[in-house]
Every structure is written in structure tokens, then in C-alpha cells.
Amino acid sequence: MAMTSPPTIALPPPMHRPVCGWGLHDGLVVARRNLLATLRNPELLFFSLIQPVIFVLLFAYVFGGAIPVPGASPEAGASAYREYLMPGIFGQTVAFAAASSTVGIAEDMSKGIIDRFRSLPMKSSAVLFGRTLADAVRLILVLAVLAITGLVVGWRIHNGALLATFAFVLLLLFAYTVAWVGVWIGLYMPNTETAQTAGLLWLFPLTFMSNAFVPLEGMPTWLQTFASWNPLSALVLACRELFGNPTGQLPGQTYPWPLENPIAYTLISCAVILAIFIPLAARRYRNSTSH
């Protein structure tokens, strides 16, 4: 039997440790594994692309005529809302991607592969970096499909490719950030089923208590305050400004600091959330025994 021939390839000299340590290298290896798994599961990929497209169509045509955008001319009507809506849908989509990180890590933790990872001399947090990185990369495809859908329903980029690219970079940064929150939640989930439910819960208030779909003016004051400081509001507003879409803000009126400086506030929020949740998730991962 061929199984009984002795090994022929001897162990090579060890590789040099990269200057920044093995964290990035190991994270990329794990990210590659997660992306390959996505490609091998095309049905899941397909439905994860379809869902935001359905949201665009629902909001654009069901709510479109009913929600006036402040500052837009009345005759613009539904088409102004569609332009206003698209950055909101982008924001909602990158936020909701956190749920798939929650489910993904909960699934990883329930499988034997985690024992393999733990018995290897790899950087342990690479499992989490690989997960969040792959989830963010997957969103590039989702955002591309969304952007095309948006163009079909009448959304346009008015401020040029450079600023638009910057908007997409902000969206991906935000996606990567909430993925860490999602991973942290996922590490507390006893099983995949619970992760599927719990992973979504916090995302509803995060996205709907914001300016993603409706202007803040119609909300009660306390909710307006919350929504103004919601990082997602700043992200969506930043995208609206960068794409040159209606912002829903009236000229001459003063708004809370995050809405006056949406790009800065988005960057600061992401930095703060990452600084909190990367160590939290990494500690949780180290301290939890596998399945």
C-alpha cells in the first residue's frame, strides 16, 4: 500500500520572524481559509448578496414617496429619497455584517478545527483577525452589488471617484470595526443557533436609531440625541457628503459635534471601538476552552 512509504521531505530551516511578529501572517492565513470557505458555499454568498438588494428596493419604492428629505426640493420627491437612502443602506449593510461574524466565530468555536488551531504555534488572536478580515473583504463584493443596484434605482455619485473611494474605505473600516464587536459577542454564544438570533439583536437599534433611513427631525428629542451620537449616523452622513447625496441637514442650522464633523467622528469611533473590543475578544478567546 502506498501509505507505507517513508517521508522524503525533511523539515526546512525555520522562516525569519517578520518584524511585526507573526500576527499579520497568521491572520492572513486564517482569513484566506474563511474566504475559501465562502467561495465553497455559494448559496450562502448568493443570499447574503440578495438581502441588501431587497432592502434597497423595499425602501426605495415602499417608503420612498412617504419620507420627505429636508432640504430637497418637493418636486425631487422619491428620487431625492433614493439618493438619500443609498448611503443609509450601505451603512446598514456593513453594520449587519457583524452578525455574520458572530455566527462565523460561534461556528468555528463549535468545531474541531479550533483544537487544531490551539495546538499550533500560531498567534492565537489570528483566528479572530482572520475572521474579521475575511468578513470585511467579503463586504467589498456586497457593496459592489449594492452600488450597482443603487445606480439602477437612480442613486448617483456627484463628487468624483476619489471622494467616493474614500467613502467606501470608511464603510469597510466601519465593517471591520463592528465585526470585532460581533466576534466578541460570538465568543459568548453557546451554539450557532443562539448566535444567529443574538448576533442580530443589537444591530436593529444601532441601524434604525440613526439617520440611515429617516431624517432625525421626526424623532423625539431624546432619540435625536442618541441618533446624533450614534457612530452609524456619522458614517452614513459622511458617505452622503462624500458621494454628494442629500444629507438631510439644513444649511445654517447647528447640529451636535458628530454631525458637524462626521468623518472625524467616524474615524474616532472606529478607533475607540477597536481599542476596546480587540483586547476584550482576544482575552475571551484565550480564556474560553474549545467546544
Binding site: 520572524r17 501572517h25 497568521d26 492565513v29 481559509r33 487544531r116 488551531f117 499550533l120 504555534p121
Partner: peptide, 10 residues
């Protein structure tokens, strides 16, 4: 290959 890479082999 994934396992080998995580052992930091070329």
C-alpha cells in the same frame, strides 16, 4: 498547507 503555514514553514 494551512496547517503548515501556521507552523511558519515556507
Amino acid at each position: 498547507t494551512m496547517v503548515g503555514r501556521l507552523y511558519h514553514l515556507p
